[in-house]
Simulated assay, not measured.
Amino acid sequence: MPRRFNLLGFQGDPDVLLSRRRLLAGAAALMSALAAPRLLAQTGDVIRLGQTVAFTGPLGDIGQAMHRGSKVCFDAVNGQGGVHGRRIELVAKDDGYVVQRALQNVQGFLEDPQLFGLFSCMGTPIIESMLPLIRHTDVPCFSPLTGASSARPSDMRNVLNLRASYPEEAERLVEHLATIGLKRIAVAYQNNSFGQEVLQSAEKAIRRHQLSLAASASIQNDASDAAAAAKTISASAPDAVLLGLAGKPTVGFVKAIRAERKGLPLYALSVMGSAATLSALGDDGVGIAVSQVVPLPNRSVVPVVRDFLKAWHATPGAIEPSHLALEGYINARVFVETLRRAGRHLTRKSFIDAAWNIKRLDLGGFQLNFLEPGRNASRFVELTMIGRGGRFIR
């Protein structure tokens, strides 16, 4: 049976690993065909993008919000005639945040002769696993939803990352703690690759700002040891706790640490802020500071947010606008701008070249600068706080 994976953590399973090897072997036959640039010059051509994303499972709310944010942008562009006369078609397949299903989705996309590229695929373990399928090809992998260094290869020019990295988020949080005079910082981190990277980044930032690490405690993906971790953290008497957590471990640890020390300041990364997590936290979430990689989605004084809200409300749907929805919209806006710059005689190569030639692009309160493979184009990180009703405030 395939195993489910909590956000951004991959743990080896013999059956999954075997399936991955089979998928990789099957995909090898596609490499030579995919490596050849395809000309899309005829007016009216469709630019087809593949997206493997969680619509169901514990992270389904993240995938739905991000996908819809992208879709409202593409629909608005298509409604105005597309880009150079070409309509953008976003084909999304649910993977439930299961690596094996995601790899099957990606292989299916790569077998489609009309596929132009992959767009906003979701999650570190999934991106890590799919990178070998597109290595040595010209298939663009645009704006994957992960901040992990492991999913940002410096030798793959076709992987185009937008969002700020987890180390950058951790640095911003620690910098803030140093600025307000909090000295003893504890770190609660998920026992997976995501959590380990946050811990290592936080430790470096703590040393750089001449603070002290009061304690660190790992938490399993099922949150079974969250209460024990809270006791360890509480016993160290920290001034604040940085959370390298997402999903169930966030809820388990926050509730446990609130029971130990109710007023202890808590600081978290953007990935903790899904609608399901905020709902499960309830009043225990109020006051948690959270780094964000896009602006507040209701701050209409920011031009790109105003554009987003206009497109969002023009499309029927019950989902509330969120940071993740805005991130999806921004990803789509940058994709559209890259298409425009690539020109009418479009190939995958011309698209990738156009992306790396984007310098100091301002979408209206959100700047991007494509520097080199392995680097993210955006360095936007701001701090928000969870208010009453699970809404973010500045």
Rank of each mutant, 00 (worst) to 15 (best):
L59M: 03
G387Q: 09
G263T: 14
A36I: 15
A311G: 01
G328H: 11
L131E: 10
G195L: 11
P167K: 04
E320W: 06
L269G: 05
P58K: 02
D45V: 07
L264Q: 12
A246W: 08
A186H: 05
N105Q: 04
A102C: 05
V254I: 12
M156Y: 12
M385S: 14
I393S: 10
L339H: 00
N298Q: 12
R86Q: 00
M272I: 15
M31R: 15
P37R: 06
L59N: 02
P167R: 06
E89K: 04
A235I: 04
H84R: 05
T146M: 11
L211W: 09
T56P: 05
S291T: 13
S279D: 12
I219D: 07
E128I: 01
V290F: 09
D45H: 01
A214Q: 04
G50S: 08
A205P: 02
E260T: 10
M122W: 07
D225H: 14
D225C: 12
F119Y: 14
D239W: 01
L7M: 10
I257G: 08
I206V: 15
T232I: 14
Y267M: 13
G364L: 10
T232R: 15
E372V: 10
I319Q: 15
T52V: 07
D95M: 08
G252W: 11
S350I: 01
L49S: 03
G252M: 12
R184Q: 07
R152I: 09
F109P: 00
V187M: 06
S291E: 03
A235N: 11
L211G: 11
Q292A: 15
E169M: 03
Q220R: 15
A256L: 11
R21T: 05
L296I: 01
A240N: 00
E327Y: 05
S279T: 10
S19K: 14
S150L: 12
Q104Y: 14
A186E: 10
V91W: 11
E111G: 04
P297N: 12
I219Y: 04
Y97T: 02
R375H: 12
K359D: 07
L90I: 05
S322A: 09
T52G: 04
A215C: 14
E260P: 08
L18Y: 09
L103N: 05
L23T: 15
V294A: 13
R375N: 11
K231E: 15
L160F: 08
Q367A: 13
V251D: 09
F116G: 00
P14D: 12
G50A: 13
R360C: 06
K204N: 07
L361S: 01
R172A: 04
G389I: 06
A170R: 02
A164R: 10
G328P: 09
Q42L: 04
F351G: 09
G282D: 07
V381M: 05
F308T: 04
A354H: 03
Q200D: 09
A268V: 05
